[in-house]
């Protein structure tokens, strides 16, 4: 094979990996974007809620018989999807008993709009989840054992008979497909359904939403729970190819925020594309940079985009009045 073809093959391989990882990051970011977009709350615990999603998927797979019933292929995927409703419930309660005390219409008119209390609260929840996770789950890294993560589909050879093949890790590929499906479902929910529109109205102007008869606190609870559930699904999908421990949330929460800000705050589709861009940059940067620098590459691109488009790639200038 000529050096040119090797270069092409490496590029296509990194591109494919970037697209797949990007879909997963995109899904994570959509979950966070949902919470941030509707509530304007900085949720530091998002990464740790995702960690809970990973463990939920893992326990469902190993402990609750999904492996035995559905086998090693469908099992992990169903486990990841089921982590969604479980963390939806968790998110509902976290909002009901903790987050709602420092957010919502009542707080919006107070000095600083309650942001200090929100930051400390979600940071506290994050620390409790990390350390609680350590006590409950132990520090030993887990992974969802499935043949998916160690096998690949080959696309190609693309040129002649034996040149330039792209290998798709099956775990990532299936995860990417599920991510797209969940993102599309979420997008339809927010843009078409009555409840979804009410969430957007509550995000746009909480006071006016009250005048429409919308229960803004409840809208926030739905957004928080849905956002948590969606990120948990992403976590469960990542767990298929990525070993995790209770502190794994830290690695992802930064990526999620970068993605949400890149996409333009408050836009669900923007958050997805922001996550996608991060996945692509992360994987493509390995072509020219050492692997250890992939997160640096992300933030160089991040700063570049923010410098040129402070409102994010999909941020609207109409924004809130």
């Amino acid at each position: 094979m000529s050096p040119g073809l090797i270069l092409l093959e490496n590029f296509l391989q990194a591109l494919a990996a970037g697209l797949m990882v990007g879909c997963l990051y995109g899904l994570m970011c959509t979950g966070l974007g949902m919470i941030f977009g509707v509530m304007r709350v900085i949720n530091f615990a998002q990464g740790d809620l995702m960690m809970l999603g990973m463990y939920a998927a893992w326990y469902l797979f190993t402990g609750f018989g999904l492996l035995a019933v559905l086998g090693p292929y469908a099992g992990p995927i169903v486990g990841a999807i089921m982590a969604g409703p479980i963390l939806f419930v968790a998110g509902w309660f976290i909002h009901r008993f903790l987050v709602s005390r420092v957010t919502g219409v009542k707080v919006a008119s107070t000095e600083g709009a309650g942001h200090y209390a929100q930051l400390i609260l979600t940071l506290g929840v994050a620390l409790i989840l990390q350390n609680g996770g350590l006590i409950l789950f132990g520090s030993e890294p887990r992974s969802v054992r499935t043949p998916l993560s160690s096998s690949a589909w080959e696309i190609g050879p693309l040129i002649d008979n034996d040149f330039v093949s792209v290998f798709l890790n099956q775990g990532r590929a299936v995860g990417a497909v599920v991510s797209i499906a969940v993102t599309v479902a979420l997008f339809l929910f927010v843009s078409r359904s009555r409840l979804g529109k009410a969430l957007r109205a509550a995000a746009d102007n909480p006071e006016a939403a009250v005048y429409m008869g919308i229960d803004v606190d409840r809208a926030h609870r739905v957004a928080f729970a849905v956002g948590t559930g969606v990120t948990a699904i992403a976590g469960g999908l990542v767990a298929i190819y990525y070993p995790f421990q209770p502190y794994v949330g830290l690695e992802f929460v930064i990526v999620m925020y970068a993605g949400v800000v890149l996409g333009g705050l408050g836009s669900i589709t923007g958050a997805f594309w922001g996550g996608m861009l991060i996945g692509l940059v992360q994987q493509l940067s390995t072509l020219i940079l050492p692997v250890q620098l992939q997160n640096t590459a992300i933030f160089v691109v991040f700063l570049g985009v923010i410098f040129l488009r402070p409102q994010g790639l999909f941020g609207r200038n109409v924004e809130r009045v």
Partner: peptide
């Protein structure tokens, strides 16, 4: 309300649909 307070990122018709939330 004073100052109109429409939902800026919703379309005109979606604003009206929110009015019809009752």
């Amino acid at each position: 309300p004073e100052g109109r307070q429409v939902f800026p990122s919703l379309s005109v018709e979606e604003n009206l649909q929110m009015g019809a939330f009752t």
